[in-house]
Amino acid sequence: MENYMWLNALVFYVFAFVLIISALFVVFSKNPVHSVLFLILTFFNASALFILEGAEFIGFTLLVVYAGAVAIMFLFVVMFIDIDTHTIKGGLIKALPVALILGLIFLAELIVAFVSWKIPLTHVNSDLNLAFHATQVSNITDLGLVIYTRFFHIFQMGGLVLLVGMLGAISLTLRDKREDFKTQDISQQLERTYVNTLRIVQSEPQKNDNEKKDSENEKSTETDTANSNSNSNSNSNKDSDSSSDIEKTGEK
């Protein structure tokens, strides 16, 4: 393990450097789509750092969940909405003092935490040998052993948060059920057979009272109205599915 110390350090610094640079570009790039792309690069580098430190599971999960799904949703939204970048940039300058203060506080907290946090060197798992042979301890096994036993309640709380998020998403998209748009019922479509779809209708348009009136009013479009009337009549009798085209041919 110690053999790859220098290599490990090199890889770490490359990823960390790109991580910080891309995180800066998330804020400073002019095009919002580029911002999201840099955010994805940031996720990617962060997951590489996790993997480098031996937390492969967290690294891959970060990649699957954030880079693979969450960021793509950001990208989707940003691509769709034409954002006026000037107003956003104005907001950035206005918020700069507050952001700087908050940033400094967080930085100070991190420094305090890391100075007092002494990790024994033996625990540092420099796992570039991941690439050579499977490590004996799989950290997904470790995680599985504790997450459903020792940290069961925290796990359940996490699930609850996800449930709330899911309900929120559903309630946002679920409006009053609209009646005015057409959908297709696939089972109904599949049930259609030759026998109960095709019907030869022998209608004599002149005998119908309503149609008589219509034809008297508009003699020039006599045949058209007759057609449409007979269609609407037959549609109300049958399934909405039955095709009116066939009946037209039947009439002719």
Partner: peptide, 15 residues
Amino acid sequence: SNINLGVLFIFAISG
């Protein structure tokens, strides 16, 4: 690279 989380790796990359 014979890693322990091979399936997850494939899944992440194809994502």
